[in-house]
């Protein structure tokens, strides 16, 4: 479940980066209220980004960074054991 959540948020982050510049308005010079349409898009997009970041901070903060409790550390435990083994193992390899 956290794995799915991680990939979901990663996709959201990439999406936010991908459309901050409205590539679909390339070469477009439409003005709305004296300001280029592509700039309006960008301003709106930044507001959207703020809202998304706020949601992330409320709901998923710590994702991929904090190793809390049962769910993720179950997965992590074997590597930790291997970690200490790998140090000696590293020398013999």
């Amino acid at each position: 479940m956290p794995r799915l959540e991680l990939w979901g948020w990663l996709a959201v982050a990439i999406g936010l980066c991908a459309l901050a510049i409205p590539w679909f308005l390339w070469n477009d010079a439409t003005l709305v209220a004296g300001i280029p349409l592509w700039l309006w898009w960008h301003v709106g997009w930044m507001v959207l980004a703020s809202i998304v970041f706020w949601l992330f901070a409320q709901r998923a903060w710590g994702l991929g960074i904090e190793s809390t409790g049962a769910d993720s550390s179950d997965e992590r435990r074997p590597p930790r054991g291997r970690d200490s083994g790998a140090e000696t193992g590293g020398e013999t390899r």
Binding site: A13, L16, C17, A20, I21, P36, W38, L39, H42, W45, M46, A49, F53, F56, W61, G62, G64, I65
Partner: peptide, 25 residues
């Protein structure tokens, strides 16, 4: 004025994501 888009993407979004990914850690 496209410079706004470049700066917006770099500082407003990419840096903000790094704020979490690098900064929080």
């Amino acid at each position: 004025p496209e410079w706004i888009l470049v700066m917006g993407l770099m500082d407003g979004i990419i840096f903000a994501i790094l704020w979490y990914v690098i900064g929080y850690k």
